[in-house]
């Protein structure tokens, strides 16, 4: 009985803490973020198992954690309001080449992050080529490229008039 209760408590605690940490905390997987994830996992192991080496306990803990996950996914499917609370909402951060700076600041992302996503997903080079950039609930940034090609970069003109033929 204790195993089930412990697993449920650890699940809720992790859910609340990671939800409060915000989207970008675990979205960008640098090497450090990866190590941090491992350390978090290690910290919960003691609370879940103690010095109990039995397979039965491990199975109970795993089934409880996965079961709560499945249960929540069903609740989120049927009650979108609950899904918003647990998962968050997607948010537009760039609108037709115009960065929405206040939103980006609160979400702790910069124009560089948006441009990196644009480069890696669509090979886009500049903000003007982006119709919409959306910060998704996963913490990743998705890009909708602009429909028409943007005007080309103006060539630098010399003081003298261009030679004409």
């Amino acid at each position: 009985m204790e195993s089930v209760v412990r697993a449920a408590l650890v699940y809720v605690i992790l859910l609340v803490i990671l939800r409060l940490a915000g989207r970008r905390t675990l979205a960008e997987m640098t090497s450090f973020d990866f190590v941090l994830l491992l350390v978090i996992g290690e910290s919960t192991q003691q609370a879940l198992l103690g010095d109990d080496f039995s397979i039965t306990t491990a199975a109970i803990v795993i089934v409880t954690l996965v079961g709560i996950d499945i249960g929540l996914s069903l609740i989120k499917r049927d009650f979108p309001a609950v899904a918003r609370v647990i998962d968050g909402v997607p948010m537009v951060v760039v609108d037709h080449g115009r960065p929405l700076r206040d939103r980006m600041r609160q979400a702790r992302i910069g124009v560089d992050d948006v441009l990196e996503a644009a480069r890696s997903r669509h090979g886009l080079e500049r903000l003007e080529e982006i119709k919409f950039a959306v910060l998704e609930i996963s913490g990743g940034i998705s890009i909708v490229p602009a429909d028409d090609p943007p005007p080309p970069e103006p060539e630098p003109r010399s003081k003298n008039a261009a030679k004409s033929r």
Partner: peptide, 18 residues
């Protein structure tokens, strides 16, 4: 899923020890 729910209930009741 039903099997998992049965397992968790059994564990809570103590049928798997504790």
């Amino acid at each position: 899923w039903i099997g998992m729910a049965v397992l968790v209930s059994a564990a809570l009741a103590g049928l798997l020890g504790d």
